[in-house]
Write a protein that binds this DNA or RNA. Structure first.
Lengths: 222, 222
DNA sequence: TGCACAAATATCGTATACAATATATCATTG
DNA sequence: CAATGATATATTGTATACGATATTTGTGCA
C-alpha cells in the first residue's frame, strides 16, 4: 500500500526522469501540494525523500529545487556506475530466468516504440528503466538501491550535459546485452555493460551546460 | 547551520553506531521527542532520514524500529564494501596529503585509546570512522555517500552477527593501510583494503543472530 | 483456566495554525 | 535615475490538534 507521499515522490520523479522539469526549477510546497491535492506535510516528506536521492536540493528557509549536478558530480556518477553496473550485469546474467529474459525483451520493445513516437523524454526514462530491471534481476538489494539513485541522477545529468541529440547508441548496447543474457554469459555481459557506460560517460560535454526552464504546473499535469 | 532534525539524526545515529541501542528497538516518536526536546514533526523527519540510510525501518501505523539486517542484507553490505572501498582506498592513496596522513594517524591513536579504555562501542564507531576518513580524503562524493551508508549498516550487522569478541584484526589492517598511504602506494592500499574487508566479512557468523535489547532512554542520555 | 471478543488506551498519519525567515514592493534620497 | 532602506508579502519551519489505526486491557463465556 503506497503512502500518499510515495505518490508525490513518484509523480515528481517521473516528471524529472522524463525531462519535464528542468534542473534548478523551484518546487514550492504549496504549489506541489495543490497539484497533488495533499497538504504541505506530505509534500515536505516527499521532497525530503527526493533530496535523499539527490534529485532535489533543499536550502534552509528558501525551499526545494530540482538538483543541478555539477560537472564533478556528473563525472562521479558515471564513474560509480562504471564500477557497479558491470558487476551487477554479470550477476544478472548468472541468475537470468526465461521469464526475466522475456520481460527485458518487452522492455526493449517499449523503448523502441517510444523512440519511434518521438517521445524523447519517455525514451530516456525507459532506457534508465532497462538498467534498473537488470539490477532487479541480479537480486542484490544494496547494489540495486545504489543503481536506482545513480540512474535517477543520470537523467538530470543528461538533461544538462548531453551533447548528441539521439540516443541510438543506447538501443544498440541494450541489444548486445540481451545477446549476452540469452547465453547466460556473465563475462560478456559485464564487459558490454562496462563499455556501454563508458560510452554514455563520453557522450557528455561537461564544459557546456544547457538551460531549459519550464513551468512546474504544466510539467506535472497528467 | 545544522537543522534541529539533523541533531536528532546525529544523536540516534551515534547511539546506534556505538551499539547503545539494539536492533529491533522501537523508537516511539513521543519518547524520542521528549528526550531531544523537540516536537514529533522534527522526530518524524529524523526517523525518515534514518530510514533512508536503512538504519531504521518504518512500518505503517506501527512506528519506527532500529533496523535488524537479515543475513542476506549483511552479506550484500560487505560485498558492496568489498567492491567500492578498495577503489576508494586507491584514490585516497593518490591524493594523500601530509596533513591528511597526520589526521589518519591521530584517528588511529584514538582507536587505540578507546580500545585500551575497554569501550567496545566507541572503538567500533571509531573503526568505522577510519574508513569514512579515507573516503573523505579520496574526495569522491558519490562513493563517500555510499560508504557512509554502508558503514552505518555494518555497525548494525556487527551487533547481530559478529563472532569474535575482539576487534584487534581491525587495528592491524588499519596500520597496514597507513604504511601504504605513507608510500602513496595506490595498488597496495587497494589490495590491503580488499583483504581487510574480506576479513571483516568472514568474521561474521550469519547463521547465529545475537540478541541484546536495551532501554532507549538510558542509551540516549548524554 | 483459556479463549474470544469488546472497550479502552496508546501511537501514528495528516491537516492546519502560527512563528521565523526570505523575497518583493515601493518610497525616499543623493 | 540609481541606490538604499523600510514595509509588505510570500514561503518555509515548527508545534499542535484531531482523526485513523494498532495494541492492550478487561470481561464474559465455554
Amino acid at each position: 500500500m503506497p503512502s500518499r507521499s510515495d505518490l508525490v515522490v513518484a509523480g515528481l520523479q517521473r516528471a524529472i526522469l522524463e525531462h519535464k522539469i528542468a534542473p534548478g526549477t523551484k518546487l514550492s510546497e504549496d504549489e506541489v501540494g495543490e497539484i497533488f491535492g495533499v497538504s504541505r506535510t506530505i509534500v515536505r516528506s516527499a521532497l525530503q525523500a527526493l533530496a535523499h536521492l539527490q534529485l532535489v536540493t533543499i536550502e534552509k528557509n528558501r525551499g526545494a529545487f530540482i538538483a543541478s549536478p555539477t560537472p564533478k558530480e556528473a563525472h562521479e556518477v558515471f564513474e560509480a556506475r562504471g564500477l557497479i553496473e558491470p558487476r551487477v550485469a554479470a550477476m544478472a546474467a548468472r541468475r537470468m530466468s526465461d521469464q526475466s529474459l522475456e520481460a527485458l525483451r518487452a522492455h526493449i520493445e517499449e523503448e523502441h516504440a517510444a523512440m519511434h513516437a518521438g517521445d524523447k523524454g519517455q525514451a530516456l526514462a525507459l532506457s534508465g528503466g532497462f538498467h534498473l530491471k537488470i539490477a532487479d534481476i541480479a537480486g542484490h538489494d544494496v547494489f540495486t538501491g545504489f543503481i536506482h539513485a545513480l540512474i535517477s541522477r543520470s537523467s538530470l545529468i543528461i538533461a544538462l550535459y548531453w551533447r548528441r541529440a539521439d540516443t541510438t547508441c543506447e538501443s544498440h548496447s541494450h541489444h548486445a546485452l540481451m545477446k549476452a543474457f540469452e547465453r547466460r554469459d556473465a563475462a560478456a555481459a559485464e564487459e558490454i555493460m562496462r563499455s556501454h557506460i563508458v560510452d554514455l560517460h563520453s557522450g557528455l560535454d561537461l564544459s557546456n551546460r544547457k538551460n531549459a526552464p519550464l513551468s512546474l504546473a504544466d510539467a506535472l499535469r497528467p
